[in-house]
Amino acid sequence: MSVKKEFFKGLVDKNPVMVLGIGLCPALAVTTSVSNALWMMLATTFVLTCSNILVSLVKNIIPAHVRIPVFITIIATFVTVVEIVLKAYQPEVYTSLGIFIPLIVVNCMILGRAEEFASRNGVFMSIVDALGMGIGFGLTLTVLAFFRETLGANKLFGYTLIPGFEPAGIMTVAPGAFITLGLMLWAMNSIMTSRKKH
């Protein structure tokens, strides 16, 4: 098991959003702007890394049948840490991510990694896995947010791109999110199939 392989699997082969199809709620909901997507990536990666570290440390002490409740408690604790810290030091981010901060708890990706990876591997590998998965998740969100923000609001990081250009507002609301992600998946499938042919 190489570090490089474990890190890059989260970015490409096992990308949580594009390949495994998990963590979709935040992916669709907070991608109205690139800065929201980046903050979501930071928050999720932080929670994922901390929970992976802790889970891999306590994996031998916790009896099998209380495993899931303990994991959920660990994850919820770190999510609350993120919640409190954002509220105190980044109130604007806190309001713009809104209920999707507490909802990081139910991002299946985090519980999934705790169960599938961290409870079976050492601390170091768990960190590598968490970073790869978190960044893979975040990059997908950023790409999605890039399309939605530029096309839907004619903006990037809150600044207008082309003055006087009327953007397609539909991209900033839910339908735009679904359709953009659908098209991204289509593009990815097409690339995959054409690669296989060669």
Binding site: T32, S33, N36, S96, G98, G152, A153, K155, L156, F157, G158, Y159, T160, L161, I162, P163, P167, G169, T172, V173
Partner: peptide, 23 residues
């Protein structure tokens, strides 16, 4: 407010005079 970004949330946005390129 928790209105839709880019639509309702514009009620609290200060329209920047500058574009992304200026920044």
């Amino acid at each position: 407010q928790t209105e839709t970004p880019g639509l309702g949330a514009r009620s609290v946005e200060i329209a920047s005079k500058y574009t992304f390129w200026d920044v």
